[in-house]
Design a protein around this nucleic acid. Structure first.
Lengths: 220, 220
DNA sequence: ATATAAAGTTAGCTGGCTCTAACAAATAAA
DNA sequence: TTTATTTGTTAGAGCCAGCTAACTTTATAT
């Protein structure tokens, strides 16, 4: 069994290793807001437990076991977020902090029950995929709204930032998952977009925002 | 803010102090399965934080602040148990261990939401009262089934033992809260009782069992 | 190619929570 | 009332997960 602390390291490693698969100690240190020497010794400990590959001065990589365990924690986190929103009436901007705590609960039955009650959801309230029971996570092929062009019509599929602040901003603009958005214009200077959706006919989104929104072509 | 460890000490102190209000270090040590010197130093720490009254060689007592904080943790525990049973479909024998973990979650909104969804319940699935938002707990005037006499008809109001083993035993006999039970006979030798309820016309309960069942007169 | 900067490591310390061993006080028994 | 037992306390140690300071290695810039 891994400690709560170890679980947090695994989760951070998993999310940082998303693309390249490799993570630097420094990078991990910043993500967790824990000093490098502390991270360093924890990596040795996790290497002992066969959860990470560790060699001096080389980047960190999760082992299959480590990736699986991290995935299972993320599964618990995302099932919890879904449960909080769908079954308890929380807003998508309120659930991250609570799930951060609930994800450490040791009870397979508890999360299995959530899964059943939710009807085996594939994504969480922010559009992120929920890993399966083996901790395996697969993202659908989304692209950032910022990479789309004027004239395209897209469906908002996920957000890359689950902070209360960002989601509250989206709420204030009535932006939510599943929404069909048409790009009316892209400002070449700063990348800001004028879009229309629902009752909104000409709303401007800064690149800071469009960078954090994942979309897919309408009608998929 | 109190640590998870401190919360467990407070909770144990609260439940041991139920009647007399005073608890010995030794007694607390046994309840928590933590050695006396460890308990001793934790008591000094909690005394620093004004949660317990501590004087050398004298019994421990919770301060008002300590009792309030302990009550609030027990509130979270019991709301959770109720939620698990009523809203998630768990059996009353399955919820203790899960609630033991969930009770430490720091989120007023989470437990407030449970409270609302449950319709502000007064008791948990085992009949124990749920402390109010000030941590105040009041037991109704129940008595043990073992103290009742032949001929009486009683309603099963609460259980004094929430272990999986005991509750599974009760399940196997279809004994559940709210049930109307008639005492047909009491065996003077060992205090065992022959009772009838529901489909059961002559079931024998040992004193080990009747000691753990709280009842009130039928029709209250 | 060398100097500088960034990233990674080692050594040693701290606080929180646990322990054992040894001792002191209070209570119960002889 | 003296002794034995139980209960409570002190001292000292260990593990976990964090830290700072000092050093080494790797990467970057001049």
């Amino acid at each position: 069994m891994n400690s709560l602390t170890e679980e947090n390291y695994l989760k951070a490693l998993f999310s940082l290793a998303d693309d390249k698969g490799e993570v630097g100690v420094n990078e991990l240190s910043k993500r967790l807001d824990i000093k490098m020497p502390t991270v360093n010794s924890m990596m040795k400990k996790l290497a002992e437990k066969k959860l990470v590959f560790y060699e001096s001065y080389k980047p960190l990589r999760l082992t299959d076991k480590g990736r699986r365990e991290a995935g299972l924690i993320i599964r618990k986190h995302r099932l919890t977020e879904m449960f909080l929103v769908e079954k308890m009436g929380f807003g998508w901007e309120e659930v991250h902090e609570i799930a951060e705590q609930v994800e450490h609960i040791q009870s397979a039955a508890f999360f299995d029950k959530m899964d059943v009650l939710l009807g085996y959801p594939k994504v969480d309230p922010h559009g992120s995929p929920i890993p399966d029971k083996n901790g395996k996570l697969v993202w659908r092929q989304y692209q950032k709204l910022s990479q789309s062009k004027a004239g395209e019509t897209l469906v908002l599929a996920a957000v890359l930032d689950s902070t209360t602040e960002f989601l509250t901003y989206l709420n204030s603009r009535e932006l939510r998952l599943g929404l069909k958005i048409k790009i009316k214009a892209v400002e070449p200077f700063d990348g800001s977009m004028t879009v229309s959706y629902g009752k909104h006919t000409a709303l401007v989104l800064s690149s800071t925002v469009t960078e954090r929104l994942l979309v897919e072509p309408a009608g998929t």
